[in-house]
Simulated scan of single mutants.
Amino acid sequence: MASSDEPQSLRALFEAAEAKRQEVNEAPSATSPKYAEDLAAALKLYAQALDQISALSLFSANEGVEDIATSSLPYLLVDFYIGELVQRTPHLAPKERLQVLDQARSAYERFLSLADGYGLLTAPYDKLLERYRDEGEAFAVVAATGADMAAKREGKIANFKAEKALKDKMAALRRNPRYLEHGDEELVRELHLTSIRFAIHSAFQALDSLNREVPLLRSAPSPSAAATSKGEDPADTSFRLDQPFDGFRPGTGGPLLSTKGKPLQPFTLIGSRADLAKGVFRPGHNLPTMSIEEYLEEEKRRGGIIEGGGTEPPRKVVDEDDMEAVDRETYKARAWDDFTDDNRKGSGNTLNMG
């Protein structure tokens, strides 16, 4: 028979587990190392509490809820809390997530069976449990078959109102002065029973969510399996569309320009190599990039740039001691002067003559 004088070790275990569960619930991120540590610690403490409950035979199938001591009522929730925490375990791989959901499902089922044995599943939850046992993984809180959209909407509204009513009742009990100041046994017991009813409601919601997630996980192939089935190396990323265009970089692939200057591959010109370096941490580019300096180097390599073009050629320095060379330069200068005297500037341009 249930007793109110359970060992202090069980109470201490349960309180420590509750404290860790609260830390998990208040964690800012589920990816932090502390979250994983608190989650594992809470699950370990709840598992130890279950062992104590079993060793003490705290609950019996031959009893009713009125036979459970008020101080022992919170221990009915241990399996529910385990299911809730296990379901929140972060996993990325579908196979691992499926294992997590199986463990959570088992914990919820143990909790609901225990609560049902004590007659705590009143309407409409008694009918939900019957449907769950019949439908298994096809179960949904709002039945999906044989119901139109209006009926589904009404079911969701009723579900929301039931959850809100339970939350409001728990909040009102906690605010009651008889509970706060005197720890009135009747109010304490009612609060525990309402918390159990809220957990029953939440367990069915969790099973509904779990049943919607499982088919998606089962239909999602793992990355390695998908690659292996296609005869690919899982580490090979050459199939990706967002590959860096290293083969299009100057000097590492084919020519960027034809001998006539026609682009053979798409590329983007940027101001300088410094500008290219600044863009490393920006979103990836779809086209290969090259600086203007690299473009000019490529042009020079293919012979598209004539060295020295566009500048005045250097004047030839005549050795003044070489009289023949001096005479040649003098005659050349006089011939040019005679030519410019006889031919007015622009006289050869006939395009603009009216």
Rank of each mutant, 00 (worst) to 15 (best):
H182L: 15
P90E: 06
Q99F: 00
E37L: 08
E18S: 11
L58D: 03
D126G: 10
L56W: 11
A274Y: 11
G308I: 12
P266V: 12
L58V: 00
D148K: 02
V100F: 04
T31G: 03
E297M: 15
M353I: 06
E293K: 14
L58T: 03
S229H: 14
G117F: 05
I196K: 05
G136P: 03
S202N: 14
P314H: 09
E130D: 14
R282D: 14
A172G: 01
A147Y: 00
G308A: 15
D168F: 03
E307H: 05
R110N: 12
N352M: 11
T31Q: 07
D242A: 10
L264E: 00
Q8C: 15
E66F: 07
I200N: 00
R249H: 05
E324Y: 08
N25I: 01
I53P: 04
A171T: 10
R131T: 10
A151T: 15
D148T: 07
P244L: 09
R175Y: 07
G183I: 09
E15M: 05
L43Q: 12
L73A: 02
S71R: 10
L92T: 09
E307Q: 12
S106N: 10
K164G: 12
K20P: 03
R328Y: 04
H201F: 01
A162Q: 03
H285C: 07
A55H: 07
F111Q: 01
A61C: 06
D321K: 12
D102H: 07
K127I: 02
I292M: 13
D342T: 02
K262H: 02
T252E: 09
Q103R: 10
F339V: 02
A333Y: 09
K278D: 11
